Simulated scan of single mutants.
Amino acid sequence: MTSSAKITEVGHILLDKKQPLKDRFRALFTLRNLGGIQAIESIAACFDDGSALLKHELAYCLGQMQDVRALPHLTSVLEDKNQEAMVRHEAGEALGAIGDAKAIEVLEKYINDPVVEVAETCELALGRLRWLEQQNKKLSNSTQDNPDNKEEDTDLLDNPYNSVDPAPPARVTAVKELEATLLDENLPLFQRYRAMFTLRNLSTTEAVLALAEGLKCSSALFRHEIAYVLGQIQSPACVEALSHNLRDLAESSMVRHECAEALGAIATPEAMNILQEFLSDSERVVRESCVVALDMSEYENSGQFQYADGLSKLESTSENGKVATPIQAVSS
């Protein structure tokens, strides 16, 4: 198949509501990895789906692709008050992730949105865009041999997870100092996020336990991001903390779903057993997150080459010059 034909076939899997959600997720991440306008359009065509979890992940992937051609789609989702809060939040975060100043106008429009998670996300996205603008100015000054230029954000710890984050890391200090910043609810959210990502990049057990304390903070958006970074680290040291929030039925579904996905990434037997408990949860987004998380756990324990395996499934089911149908492509 040509590259275009492959994207079309993978896009069909993503759009097919009869396909298992776990296979649609794998197709989505395959499209993200392929990139380009055709992949963007295939992803954006799914924003009318009934699954808030899937739509939230669509927005996340569009942001991670960092292609300005996704901006109109993400703007439409952010502005659509009929979309779920977690979907609008992820669209706002994705607008910041793309890193283009064209998103500033729409983000400023929603920094006082009545949905607090959306408002906080837009504030963070604006913080990232302004930080990028400052960095570009500093770079420009340094190239002009300005001896007075102070590079406050040089030598930051590299992100070993290759994700585009809502905020840059802070400078490395003692874990206790970073934890104090992380948990200080009087500080701007952007500053606390920076401490969060430095702790994430350190990835020591001490840093993991410091991050887990953030699951007790008042902002649901903040707790959800804490769960996300704990999933990236994949340390068993935080299983108990994540399971506590997942089991709390009074917790925001946005947080519970992220705790479930983090447990899926950690993929220990204990974590998988916890996920099994919530496959029939009353919240759809939690149920679906557990399904996807268990699929991720199977991948983590399987030795498979990659999670985004939409292309390999197409190739394995395309024989004698015949192109696999979407249903064939995801059949075991």
Rank of each mutant, 00 (worst) to 15 (best):
G264V: 15
C122F: 09
C217R: 10
N186R: 14
Q135W: 09
A174M: 08
G92H: 00
T205Y: 10
R192N: 13
I226P: 09
V87N: 02
E298I: 11
L157E: 04
K313V: 11
A227W: 11
R26C: 10
L129S: 03
V68M: 00
N149M: 14
N201E: 11
E151R: 10
S42G: 10
K6E: 13
L54Q: 03
E117C: 11
T121Y: 10
L34S: 05
N112G: 09
G50A: 07
M86N: 05
L21T: 04
A94N: 03
A265V: 03
P326W: 01
F190N: 13
T121P: 12
S312F: 15
L157W: 03
V118G: 04
E93P: 09
N162H: 15
A324Q: 05
T8C: 02
V286C: 06
A44H: 04
Q328H: 01
G63I: 02
L58R: 01
Q304L: 11
A250W: 10
I7P: 00
P168V: 13
T181F: 04
S4Q: 04
L132W: 07
A260C: 01
R128L: 15
T2V: 00
S282D: 10
D309W: 08
N201M: 13
P147N: 14
C259F: 07
F29Y: 05
F222C: 05
G264L: 15
A241N: 09
A5R: 08
D113Y: 06
A45E: 14
A212M: 10
K313H: 14
L14C: 11
I98D: 08
F29L: 02
C238P: 07
Y161T: 01
Q304F: 12
E41L: 14
R287W: 02
Q38S: 00
S142I: 08
A97S: 10
F25G: 04
A27Q: 00
K102E: 07
N320G: 13
L202E: 02
K102C: 05
T317S: 07
V116S: 12
L294S: 05
T181V: 14
D23R: 03
I327R: 15
S253D: 12
E213F: 04
Q134Y: 09
I104E: 11
Q232K: 07
E93C: 05
A44P: 05
A210S: 12
E288I: 06
R287N: 04
I266W: 02
A267G: 12
V239A: 07
A167C: 15
S253M: 10
S218I: 03
D16H: 12
L211C: 03
L156N: 11
K109I: 07
R284V: 00
A212C: 10
L78A: 09
S4F: 01
L275T: 06
N301R: 14
D67V: 02
I266T: 04
F25R: 03
L189T: 15
M1H: 01
A324W: 05
A308H: 11
L294I: 09
T173R: 12
A241G: 08
V118M: 03
D67E: 07
K18D: 15
I13H: 01
G310K: 08
Y299K: 06
A195D: 13
L54P: 04
I327S: 15
L275H: 04
N146I: 07
L58H: 06
A212L: 12
A329T: 02
A59R: 04
N273F: 02
L54N: 03
R128N: 13
Q134L: 11
V330M: 05
F29S: 00
A180S: 13
